[in-house]
Structure formats: structure tokens, C-alpha cells
Amino acid sequence: MDSTFQSSMQSTMIQATGLTHYYGPFPAIQDVNFDVRRGEILGFLGPNGAGKTTTMRILTGYMPPTRGTVTLDGYDVVEKSLEARRRIGYLPETVPLYTEMTVTSYLKYMGTLRGMPPKLIKGRTDDAVGLCHLEDYRKTIIGKLSKGFRQRVGIAQAIMHEPEVLVLDEPTIGIDPIQVVETRRLIEDLGKSQTVVLSSHILPEVSMICERVLIINEGKIVAEDTPKNLAEGLQGVERLEIEIGGPVTDVLPALRKIRGVSRVTHRSLTQKELYTVHVESGKDIRDEISKAVISSGWRLLSMQTVGMSLEEIFLKLTTHEDL
């Protein structure tokens, strides 16, 4: 069974449906759908300005989407905002910190805001300081810390209340390579017990940490896959997005049997079964697919080739880094 197919069977932590957000007349994201399974590390990969930060802000309840809904552990982030926010640890892209506070007083303050019981705060502050290697800077005024250390303080505040969902917007931006490695290791460790959603514009970073990657470009999700399969996307494989009305367990094998199909993934949306068919390059198999679907008595509801090729998007990404 396909890995993404399995994922839809397990319990979902975050479910985003039809997210659209406009800044004035400009759409920042359009009809973004995805779900995140409990304990998964999901990466948002996309060039700058693709809509990653907008998506994260909607996830965390900072701003409501123009259209669409997000539920977090079953709570709608707009309607049941407080319940949803209780489950979140968030590191915004700009790492906003109160520059006049010391590291520990800041962490304790954030812990209180997050509703931690006072008894826990002391111990968890020490834990967070330890995990982020800030031991020598407990009493330092945040304003005097370098960019890299501020980033660590930002991560510390996001993890100190042991949130069920960790949302990290560009967590490794602006820090030096050694710290980058440490930060990635930290995120991987956290991902063992928590659900992590992170964004990045660096391809290797996402492939190293994440179990599943969403590629977002110009406000739309253009691909969704495991990092391993993404490499395949680079080798000129074309894709078809198909909506079929029929039993998933029968449709999947039937699609895979068609000649020229290299791989099929499946997503369940509300009242929608979407299949992404990866086609060996140079072949047009739309005829075969429609025949197969119709002859089995299922309904072919939509079929489209995916617009922009992954290669073009990857060109805009940071595809390598010098470590």
C-alpha cells in the first residue's frame, strides 16, 4: 500500500481544506488542501513569497483565511481558536522577542501566556534552555544576543510548553552552519513525539528532516510527496490529477495496472477522492485512464495535467548548500 494512502487512514492532527487568503486584491494562497498526521514531520517547501508564511499564520490562528477551514486536533482555528492555540508552539519567521527581557524571564513569561501551570514552568524552562544550548545565556538581555542565539531563544519558547503541534517558519534561516545542523537534529528529536510543520526554501534541509513534503508555489500546492520520491519529480515525470468516484481500494490497483503509470498516490478530501498519477515522460495515457475508469463503472469527475513542472519550481529553490 502506498505510504500517503496509509497516512490518510491514520488519525489526522491538522486538516486544512480549501484555504484561500487575499491581501487586498492579491491572493497569497489559493485553495490549499493538506492534512498532517499525528507525530509526522511535514515540510513546506517553496521559493520566497510562495505563501508559506501566510499558511503558517493561518494554521496558528494569527489570522483567519479569507476562505477555507483549518482544524487542529479537531478544533477549528477560527471558531475554537483558544482550544487550538493551546496545542501550538510557534516560531514565526521574524523571531519576535522582547528585547529588554532576559532569556529565562522571557521563557517564563511565554510559559505563563501558554497557560502552563506555575509548578511546571521552572523545570521546563531549564529543559528548553538545555535543549537549545542556551545555558550560558540565561541571564543575558535578549537584545544583546546575536541572530543565531535569538533563533534558539525563539525555538526554546516554541517547545517549552511541550505543544502537540510545533509550527516552525524557516527555523534555520540566518544561523551559522554548525547551529543549523544542531537545530535540524533538535527538530528531528522533537518530531518523534510531536507533530511538526516547518517551512523552508532549502531543498536538502527539507529532505533531511521531513517525512513528507508539500511544495508550494505562487500560493498553490503543486506537489506532495516523500522526499525520496521528490527526486523522481526532477527526472521529467509528468503528473495527472484525477478525481474519481469509486472505491479507493479498487481504483488504486486499477490505475497502477495501466501501462505508462509509474506511481499513484491518493488523497481523501471532504467528499472527494483525488489521485495523483505519475506518468513516465513522453506518454499521454489520458485515454487509457478514462477508458479504465468508465469500463469499471466508476465516475471520472475531473482530470488535469499539473501545470508548472517541478523542475521550474526547483530552479527557484535553494537546491544546495555549502556546509
Partner: peptide, 14 residues
């Protein structure tokens, strides 16, 4: 100005 409002408003604070 600092953007700390983003953390404030995403905390479970009324």
C-alpha cells in the same frame, strides 16, 4: 512594531 504580537495572539490568551 516588534512583531511580538504574533506570538501574543497565537498564545491561548484572550
Amino acid at each position: 512594531k516588534l512583531g511580538t504580537i504574533e506570538l501574543l495572539l497565537t498564545s491561548p490568551v484572550r
